[in-house]
Amino acid sequence: MTFKLIINGKTLKGETTTEAVDAATAEKVFKQYFNDNGIDGEWTYDDATKTFTITE
């Protein structure tokens, strides 16, 4: 399955996707992406659209 990440950061904005077997696996991938890029904020997940959103 394809999961999308929408980034609404102070310095970084955009979208990316990842292929994962489930939302929990995608969450781990995206959290690592947050850490690697110094993004910290509030994030949500919409199961209907398989979209994670992080807002700094």
Rank of each mutant, 00 (worst) to 15 (best):
K13A: 09
T11C: 15
T55W: 11
T16C: 15
V21Y: 08
G9M: 15
T16H: 14
T17G: 03
A48L: 10
G14T: 14
L5H: 00
K4W: 11
L12Q: 09
K31V: 08
N8D: 08
D46C: 06
T55I: 06
K50S: 04
D40K: 13
E56V: 15
G9R: 06
I54S: 02
E42G: 05
T53P: 00
D36S: 10
E42Y: 12
K10H: 13
G41N: 06
K50V: 03
F30H: 00
K28D: 05
K4M: 06
F52V: 01
T49A: 06
G41V: 10
M1R: 07
Q32D: 08
I54R: 03
N8A: 07
A23N: 03
A24D: 07
F3L: 01
N8H: 10
Y45L: 01
T49H: 04
I54L: 12
K28W: 10
F30I: 04
A20L: 02
G14S: 12
G41S: 04
D40A: 11
T11G: 08
Y45M: 00
K4H: 13
K13T: 09
T49V: 04
A20H: 02
N8Q: 09
A26D: 00
N37H: 14
K28S: 08
T55L: 06
T51S: 04
N35S: 13
T49Y: 03
T16S: 08
G41A: 09
F3R: 01
D36A: 12
D46L: 02
V21K: 13
D40P: 07
E15Q: 09
I54G: 02
K50Y: 08
I7T: 03
E56P: 11
Q32C: 07
W43C: 06
T49E: 05
T11V: 11
D22N: 08
Y33C: 11
T11S: 09
I6E: 02
A20E: 03
I7L: 07
D40L: 13
F30N: 01
Y45T: 00
E27Q: 08
T2H: 07
F30T: 00
D47F: 06
G38M: 11
L12N: 08
A48E: 11
F34I: 15
W43G: 00
A24H: 09
K28H: 08
T53E: 04
Q32V: 07
G14K: 13
T49I: 05
I54A: 05
E42Q: 10
D47V: 09
Y45S: 00
N37K: 14
Y45G: 00
D40E: 13
A20R: 02
T49Q: 04
M1K: 09
T2N: 05
E27Y: 15
F34E: 08
K4T: 14
K10G: 09
A23Q: 08
K10E: 07
A48I: 10
G14F: 15
Y45R: 00
K28M: 10
I54D: 00
G38K: 11
E56K: 04
K4N: 05
F52M: 01
T25A: 14
E56D: 07
E15F: 13
V29L: 11
N37F: 15
V29I: 14
D36P: 07
N35W: 13
D22K: 01
W43N: 00
I6M: 04
L12W: 14
E42T: 13
A26T: 00
T44Q: 08
Y45F: 05
T2E: 06
A20V: 04
G9F: 15
T11D: 10
